[in-house]
């Protein structure tokens, strides 16, 4: 793996974070994951403000976004990202528990790049997270301005 790109994981549930990281770790993809716990923090990270004021420049290669989040929910984050000149090309994948069609439709209307339902079955879950990680952090060529680690 020559290029490993940064993944921003927006997830409020620590157990889900742990399971996701476990899934990614099995394939050595966990190193470049930044975890934020709500929509507000996700925006802080992207805009380099608040706790993330001092981080280095550059967008993540992908944002894995939960929909149901404290403070600012996933849709609101998505809406702001797509409205921002510097962020609107950022790849965003919704990672949620919900099969609800209206969530799916709303996400795509707001310009999401992918929509993944977290499976209850652990093997399926790990597999989904792994595939996501491999695709976005390794295979996919991100838009200009993304952070690359060599």
């Amino acid at each position: 793996m020559s290029d490993l790109k940064r993944i921003l994981l927006v997830e409020d549930d620590p157990k889900d974070v742990e399971l996701t990281l476990t899934g990614l770790a099995e394939y050595n993809l966990a190193n470049e994951v930044v975890i934020v716990r709500d929509g507000e923090e996700a925006l802080d990270y992207l805009y380099r403000r608040g706790n993330h004021q001092t981080r280095a420049n550059g967008n993540p290669a992908v944002m894995l976004l939960d929909l149901k989040l404290p403070k600012v929910n996933g849709f609101e984050v998505l809406e702001q990202v797509r409205a921002d000149e510097n962020l609107k090309m950022l790849p965003v994948v919704v990672l949620t528990s919900s099969h609800e069609e209206r969530d799916l439709v709303k996400s795509y209307k707001l310009g999401v790049n992918g929509y993944v339902v977290k499976p209850v079955d652990f093997h399926q879950f790990v597999n989904a997270v792994k595939e996501l990680g491999v695709f976005w952090a390794v295979i996919n060529e991100p838009p200009p301005g993304s952070v690359k680690k060599r």
């Binding site: 157990k15 889900d16 929909l67 919900s98 609800e100 879950f125």
Partner: peptide
């Protein structure tokens, strides 16, 4: 109700299954 079931009821299930697997 259905919306919250869809979002909230599944997460603990996933955790039970996930951590049991681990």
């Amino acid at each position: 109700f259905a919306y919250s079931v869809s979002h909230d009821l599944r997460a603990p299930l996933r955790h039970i299954a996930g951590f049991t697997e681990l």
